[in-house]
Every structure is written in C-alpha cells, then in structure tokens.
C-alpha cells in the first residue's frame, strides 16, 4: 500500500490554479522528489499534505488517513522541514528539540535519549546548549531535519531543504537525507528546483504550472531524452568508426576530432567499445543526460532560467532598497 496517495488534487487561489488536478503515489521507505521551478505548486501541495491548507477539490491521504477529515491522525504521522526556518532562534538546539518532543507526545523518559541521539546523528551534540541564533544556515537545516524525525514520523516532508546553503553544507545534508529511509524507516517527500539534487530520489515527479508532466525513476526520466553519449578519441577516428559499425553495429559520428556515440547504457558499453577497438583508444568520456535535460525537453525551458529570474528580482529589490537608503 502506498504511504502517500494523492488523487486529482486541485487548489485555486482566486482565479489562479496553483495545483491543477495532480495525482501520484509514494511507496513506503522511498525518497520521492517533487521537482519544478519556483511557483510550480510544490509548496502548495506540501501544505495540503501536511494539513495546513485545504484543497479546492480532490483527495490526499497519508497512511490511509485523509488529510482533510482526519488531520490530527495525519499530523501524528508526519514530520516537516519547511522552506523557511521554523526554529526558535532564542532557544538552544536542545530546547527546540525538547519543545517538539513535548508537542508530539514523545514519552518523557525517552526525551533525553532521543534528543541526544538525534543531535549526535546530525553532529551537533557539542553545540546542544547554544542558542540557535549562533548557528550557520547548514546547521539550522540539519537541526530541523533532526527535529522532524524525533517523533518517528512515517513521512518526512522536506520543502527545498538546501535553499540558500553553500555547496558543502548542501552535499552534507544530502548525504544525511539519503540515509534516512534506511536508518530511521521514514519515507521522504522532498521538493527542490535543483535538478542534480533529485538524483538521490527513488522516484521523481516533475511539476510545472500546477500539473505533473512526468513521473518515474530518475533512470526512466533520463531515458526519455535519449541515452548516454560516449566521446572517444582514437589514433584514427575514421578507421575506428568503420570498425565499430562492422563489429558492434553502432553508428559513430566524428565531431571536433572525437567520435560521438549514443548508447542507452553508456557505462556498460565502454568495455565492449574498448575491447573491439583494441589499442586504438586514446581517451573515453561519458556524458549522461541530466534531469535538467528532461525538464528542458518536456517544457521547452530550462528549470534554472526561472530560478535565476527570481534571484534577479531579489537583487533588484535589494538594489532599489540600497538606493533609497543611500539618499538619506
């Protein structure tokens, strides 16, 4: 039985359909990625699933409980890391987690053990008595994830968990998140607009303008844009191309002094290529399609374009604010 089930879900804000008839299922103990540009309807969907918003129409259920009619059952089953920090910065790391444990009715004799274990897991045990305002962005995020799992939820929602983090904290956080299903037995539902981050997901749904345009495993999605591309440098490209056609039936084209070969599973192809070309090979390079290529193919635009756009808006508003300020 799927742990999250969404059927024909729609949410209108006035005339705007933020979510427009989406449907999907999430299997237990998996990582499900919800991908799309800013404003695609990701956060709206999460807010409906975690009982903060009611849908205009359609159904959403977590572990068999309807998100609308049985919200208190649903709330017990879920943990959430929102897009913006929801920690109390005046409280210490320990106090934030303790607040959460009380709120979720974790038995009192387990509080200390669980909180200490969670802090240890995220590597913040040494800083447990520091106020959260002294923490870096990455530390806050990790603390929020730890808080989200302290009451052992069935599903953990992560809404753009790496937004605004530096590359290193981002990598750390991903490593940590990818271990969660195995380590804590939790199903992870995450949104992101960074395509490369979605690679750790077991399944991905790509959403644009409130509609799911594709749903599948990362491998399946990448196959939609054709397979991998192998670039070969050989001592004699022409001869090598002929040889490949003869022995393996592969068509290779020459491009900028390299042979360019399309293959479904490029990595498995390389050993065969090399063995059939004997010692002619000078170098091999494999290029795999990215999820960004998938998005580009399906929507005709790159996902980053939009992300970049909103970033520019922010810069503009900061600039105009500074202008005002400088005049004074």
């Amino acid at each position: 039985m799927p742990i999250i089930k969404v059927e024909n879900l729609t949410k209108h804000f006035g005339p705007v359909a933020a979510v427009d008839g989406i449907a999907f299922e999430v299997e237990k103990n998996s990582i499900f990625g919800f991908l799309g540009p800013n404003g695609a309807g990701k956060t709206t969907t999460i807010n409906i699933l975690c009982t903060l918003l009611s849908p205009t129409s359609g159904k959403a259920a977590i572990d068999g409980h309807d998100c609308m009619t049985r919200s208190s059952e649903v709330r017990k089953k879920i943990g959430i890391v929102f897009q913006d920090t929801t920690l109390d910065k005046e409280l210490t790391a320990y106090e934030n987690l303790s607040f959460h444990a009380y709120l979720y009715g974790v038995p009192k004799d387990l509080h200390k053990k669980k909180i200490d274990a969670a802090l240890d897991f995220i590597g913040l045990y040494d800083r447990k008595d520091d106020q959260v305002k002294k923490f870096s962005g990455g530390m806050k995020r990790r603390l929020e994830v730890a808080r989200g799992i302290i009451h052992e939820p069935a599903v953990l929602f992560l809404d753009e968990p790496t937004l605004g983090l530096d590359p290193q904290s981002r990598a750390n956080l991903w490593e940590f998140i990818s271990k969660l299903p195995e380590k804590s037995g939790v199903t992870v539902f995450m949104t992101t607009h960074y395509m490369e981050e979605a690679e750790i997901c077991n399944r991905i749904a790509i959403i644009d303008k409130g509609r799911i345009i594709v749903n599948g495993t990362p491998e399946e999605l990448k196959k939609m844009v054709g397979g991998d591309v192998i670039y070969l440098k050989t001592t004699n490209n022409k001869l090598a191309a002929e040889e490949l056609k003869k022995t393996m039936g592969i068509g290779a084209e020459e491009k900028n002094g390299e042979l360019f070969i399309q293959a479904v599973r490029g990595d498995a192809c390389i050993p065969k290529l090399i063995s059939s070309l004997a010692d002619m090979v000078l170098s091999v390079r494999l290029q795999r399609p990215t999820l960004n290529d998938v998005f580009l193919k399906l929507t005709g635009k790159a996902i980053r374009d939009e992300a970049q756009g909103s970033g520019d808006e922010l810069k503009d508003s900061i600039r105009s604010y500074r202008k005002k300020f400088d005049k004074k």
Partner: peptide, 14 residues
C-alpha cells in the same frame, strides 16, 4: 513571521 507558528500548527495537538 519567523515561522515557528507552523511548527505548532502541524503538531498533533488541539
């Protein structure tokens, strides 16, 4: 404003 209200609102308490 600082989002902490959400932490309380998604909790399974009345």
């Amino acid at each position: 404003e600082f989002g902490f209200m959400k932490e309380m609102l998604v909790a399974p308490v009345s």
